[in-house]
Design a binder for these strands. Sequence first.
DNA 1: CCAATACTAAAGTTCTTGCCTAACTATCCA
DNA 2: TGGATAGTTAGGCAAGAACTTTAGTATTGG
Lengths: 118, 118
Amino acid sequence: MLNQSPDLDRLFHALADPARRAMVERLSRGPAPVSELARPLPMSLPAAMQHLGVLEAAGLVRSEKTGRVRTCAIEPGALSLAEQWINARRVEWERRLDRLGAYLKTLEHEGESDGSNG
Amino acid sequence: MLNQSPDLDRLFHALADPARRAMVERLSRGPAPVSELARPLPMSLPAAMQHLGVLEAAGLVRSEKTGRVRTCAIEPGALSLAEQWINARRVEWERRLDRLGAYLKTLEHEGESDGSNG
DNA sequence: CCAATACTAAAGTTCTTGCCTAACTATCCA
DNA sequence: TGGATAGTTAGGCAAGAACTTTAGTATTGG
């Protein structure tokens, strides 16, 4: 069964682009207007705006327009969804390694008092 | 400046698809042949193979063929790159909040003994 | 008011993804 | 040996993503 999760889709997809990650990196140091986010990027302003739209759709960034300036800020909780998914995977394969270790240990001791096997 | 990082690009892009995440979820519980990874997915076997190719290119999965069976396994360290990037962002904005808090504190105490400012 | 600034909207191009089917190769097993 | 199983390769197509340029709409400040 496929664990549908459009939130994770959008989140990871948003992070998969270097321009968008650069924006997130900039914003984790504090809010910034659109033009400041766009300036270092090797692309037109409309292109940068589209990236910003992807980040907002993913919930990573919120923005608010005051006068003619749109100020963008990071949404601190958004990354935790991705983090949780990654951690869940680690927990799973660590638990699996533990089981494997325990199993190997039973093999070591097998035959000491009970040599039955399946 | 754009922090080029094709590894992160590939990694996040690989995780942005539900079919590929499903494969990673399955593999964190232990190795599996291609057909077992493909079975639950609503797509043809060749399509599933392409997803597997994306996961391998991202370094998330390794596979080895023995006889006619290709056995896939998770690459435990691969996710840590993504995790590190996410943690780095959190560190940045937490530090920023600390600075902000400290600054607000100086404002509270301003004028008590030293009202000078720069 | 008028020009500069900051952003927004629209439309079109190109490249990549994600999927398919069909055909093929390599094993395994009776 | 011959058929079933497991995977692979190739080609094609539709949709999406990432840009571009062009042409707007508000604001701001002289």
